[in-house]
Amino acid sequence: MKNRTKVKSIAIALSLFLITLFIFEIFIKENSISKPELISITNRHLIGREVITNGATVYTKDDQSGKEPILHSMPDNSIIIDSEEFIPVAISQFKTTKENDSYITPKIIFNNGSVAVFTKPDGSGWELEKGDSIIYSFEKYLVDFSETQSMAVGYIKNNTMTKGNIYENRTGKYTEEIQETGEYYLYIANFSSENIALKEGSITFNTNR
């Protein structure tokens, strides 16, 4: 009888543990994201909130020497093959919408260490010539736990993500003069420990043509 009671107690304890673990996993899933996403009804509640993350780390190339090859290769994507500075934990591509001479970037939310790539409406990059300039204007959603959030903005050329400029304020404007003719994509990277949510932004170009 005592053995049966003991077995029953162990079974109940194990069941409670599994239920608790299941509830915790649901909580984590509902309160975190693993890659850049369009803002929607499923993640809107994360805007402006400090949430539990997976503790992702941005690794520079120098950091990788002598370490386990956890983040040696790029996450699956069709645009970025190499990077001059760091290896993202996740990469998502977002098509812009053309309005007159501007390309409107969508509202997105992205997690620590991840990269969002903006493309033309057809998914391709922008053909630019030496001397042209690319301008990206953005605005972050307000957060209630920090006055600044670190976000890098840069470009991708020949499938290589170049070193970006860091912006911590809520609004900003990235401007880059093109040094070599070719196809370019714009990227943003989250260098903060928490999620960053962006309102619609705009990409414009100054050309000599």
Rank of each mutant, 00 (worst) to 15 (best):
A116I: 04
F86E: 01
G123M: 07
F86L: 06
E127K: 15
I81Y: 04
E50P: 03
K120H: 10
F110T: 07
L128T: 12
S83P: 05
N111C: 11
S102A: 15
M74R: 07
T57F: 11
A90D: 09
K107F: 00
S83N: 08
F94L: 02
K95D: 02
V58K: 05
Y59N: 02
P75F: 08
D62S: 10
T97F: 01
I91R: 03
T53C: 08
D122L: 08
I91E: 02
S124P: 04
D122T: 12
I104C: 12
T57C: 00
S78G: 00
D76H: 10
R49G: 10
Q93I: 15
E50D: 11
G55C: 02
Q64E: 13
Q93Y: 02
S114T: 15
E127C: 12
M74I: 10
A116C: 13
G113W: 09
W126I: 12
G123W: 08
S102F: 11
K120Y: 07
L128N: 01
K61Y: 04
V51W: 06
V51L: 13
S114C: 13
D122E: 12
I109N: 04
A116D: 06
T97N: 14
E68K: 14
K67W: 01
T57G: 02
T57D: 01
A116E: 09
E84G: 00
K95W: 02
D76C: 00
E84P: 01
I70Q: 02
N77E: 11
N112C: 12
R49L: 09
M74P: 09
D122N: 15
E50Q: 15
G125Q: 07
A90E: 07
D122P: 07
S124I: 01
E68A: 06
D101T: 14
V51H: 06
F110G: 03
S83G: 08
R49A: 08
E85P: 01
T105W: 03
E68M: 05
G113A: 08
G125E: 06
L71K: 13
S92H: 03
K107A: 04
K95A: 11
Q93E: 15
F94M: 11
S83Y: 01
I87V: 14
A90M: 05
N111F: 00
A90K: 06
D101H: 13
K98C: 09
G125V: 08
Y103I: 01
Y103E: 03
I81D: 10
G125I: 11
T96H: 04
P88H: 05
I52L: 14
M74D: 05
T105A: 08
T96D: 03
K107E: 15
G48N: 08
G48R: 03
D62G: 04
S73R: 15
S65G: 00
P75W: 05
I70L: 13
D122K: 06
